[in-house]
């Protein structure tokens, strides 16, 4: 992919996003609906969004939160991932507990650096107290990590990755345009 075509595509997306933004302003005049979540509370969603942004940080492309990781997980917890509801409850509570104890702040309010350090400890199984007994921090981190990747890089039909943003980031046409790339070399 040469940089010229990526810039033009991005410009196109900016225009498209502007269009979408003005639509949502109109929608904002309508009566307020409850948030479209099925399982996660506002606090859960805030915490998971913050985790998602460390697992896939925002840069010139959206981070995990913006790219639908929370809505993906919320939707799957009411579907095939119903069996993980207990693990999410336990893990999110344990994270909040650990952060309040160590920093007197919720995870969402910590600096990105401290958030990353804490997630690194979870990944290596370094947290063992409270809700983290029996190697749960490692297992919980790996579960959230893989679900975040599924959301970010999977099909929009499951609640994440609206408009295939990650595909555009990786330079993969969606929908596929057959023949387009064959004559590049």
């Amino acid at each position: 992919m040469d940089s010229g075509s990526r810039i033009s595509r991005r410009d196109f997306m900016k225009l498209a996003t502007l269009g979408a933004g003005s639509l949502s302003l109109i929608a904002g005049c309508a009566p307020k609906h409850p948030p479209g979540r099925r399982v996660l509370s506002d606090d859960d969603a805030g915490l998971l969004g913050a985790i998602a942004d460390r697992i896939i940080p925002p840069d010139e492309w959206p981070g995990g939160r913006e790219n639908g990781v929370v809505s993906f997980i919320d939707r799957q917890l009411d579907g095939p991932y119903r069996r993980f509801r207990g693990d999410y409850r336990r893990g999110l509570d344990a994270m909040t507990g650990t952060c309040l104890e160590k920093h007197r702040k919720r995870f969402e309010s910590l600096s990105a650096e401290k958030q990353t350090r804490l997630l690194g400890e979870m990944e290596s199984g370094g947290l063992r107290d409270g809700g983290w007994k029996e190697g749960f921090s490692k297992r919980f981190f790996e579960m959230v990590r893989s679900h975040a990747m599924q959301a970010y890089y999977g099909s929009p039909r499951h609640g994440g990755n609206p408009d295939y943003a990650s595909y555009r980031m990786m330079g993969i046409d969606y929908p596929p345009i057959l023949g387009q790339n064959r004559y590049r070399f």
Partner: peptide
């Protein structure tokens, strides 16, 4: 996970 993982994803896919 993290910045390096994301960068690898778009650089090496």
């Amino acid at each position: 996970w993290g910045e390096e993982h994301k960068e690898f994803q778009r650089k090496y896919f």
